[in-house]
Design a protein around this nucleic acid. Structure first.
Length: 278
DNA sequence: CCACAGGACGGCT
DNA sequence: AGCCGTCCTGTG
């Protein structure tokens, strides 16, 4: 168990539950078990201390600081967003302490291919099925969890293999992506260095990856904050609160208004929207 | 049983 | 270039 003193605004609960991560489990005591790339962690806040235990305590503080983006200063981005869109003020203030989790690129790619035309519970279920079938088992606090497999582990998985995990028609997209990775046709590390436009276009060359999926991958795995993933929820909000319709118009508005922090704006809007309705 | 929700794609104009 | 039917699964 380690305890990390939180120096900057950080809302653990919102950060975990606002739709960035699919593979977390809220415990009866209010803490979260979260499955990371290579380990399972349990986290909770005790005052200004973030308390973390893990199936693998090696280098844990560095891993956690990086995963939850604890050393990033969001105040500059928050001021920028409020300055450029006063209507976003409430959402920004409400979401102060929400951070962008840094997720594993391969798992993120698979997650968002599965997310196309799909619901959150179904996505989580499919991911869990894949992990149980092909991932490594980790026992943590007497509970059994399964890490999400790496692409090498999925080298010989057929379309039927994926489909038995309830991914539906996305089976062929997953297989195609895993094949390309194992054949070295794609290197996921290259996207860190590309600018957003090139990275979007390069991801969209792959079957099953369109604008929304590519944007989510870049936002959640590569910290490209200038993307603006447009889903049906965003369309509704843009129509209702800004009277803007059509993907082209929404994209133009976001680019002009939120610019390099468009993705952060979406996270704040979503976090505010879903909590306010409760 | 049917209606619906959720993005990418492909075939059509 | 833009529109629309289709793909699969789960829920109400």
């Amino acid at each position: 168990m380690i305890k990390i003193k939180i120096e900057k605004p950080f809302k653990l609960n919102d950060t975990v539950t606002c739709g960035q991560i699919f593979r977390f489990f809220k415990q009866d005591d209010g803490s979260f078990d979260i499955i990371l790339k290579d380990r399972v962690i349990n986290v909770y806040m005790d005052g200004d201390l973030l308390c973390v235990s893990s199936s693998d305590e090696n280098d844990l503080e560095r891993v956690i600081r990086n995963y939850f983006d604890l050393d990033n200063d969001y105040s500059v981005m928050n001021s920028f967003l409020i300055k450029h869109d006063a209507k976003l003020t409430d959402a920004v203030l409400f979401s102060n302490g929400l951070t962008m989790i840094k997720q594993d690129p391969f798992e993120t790619v698979m997650e968002y291919i599965i997310s196309a035309n799909n619901g959150v519970p179904q996505i989580a279920n499919a991911l869990n099925n894949i992990a149980v079938k092909y991932g490594k088992k980790v026992t943590f606090n007497n509970k059994e969890y399964y890490l999400f497999p790496e692409y090498k582990d999925l080298k010989d998985v057929s379309e039927e293999g994926y489909r038995s995990c309830k991914v539906g028609f996305r089976d062929k997209y997953l297989k195609s992506m895993v094949d390309k990775l194992n054949n070295k046709e794609i290197n996921l590390n290259q996207f860190y260095d590309l600018d957003t436009k090139d990275a979007l276009n390069k991801f969209m060359e792959n079957a099953g990856i369109g604008p929304k999926v590519a944007s989510c991958i870049l936002l959640f795995a590569y910290q490209k904050y200038d993307v603006f993933p447009i889903d049906t929820w965003v369309k509704k909000v843009m129509k209702r609160d800004y009277n803007i319709e059509g993907e082209k118009n929404i994209r133009a508005f976001a680019s002009k208004t939120y610019g390099k922090y468009s993705g952060i704006a979406i996270q704040y809007l979503f976090n505010y929207g879903r909590n306010k309705e409760k």
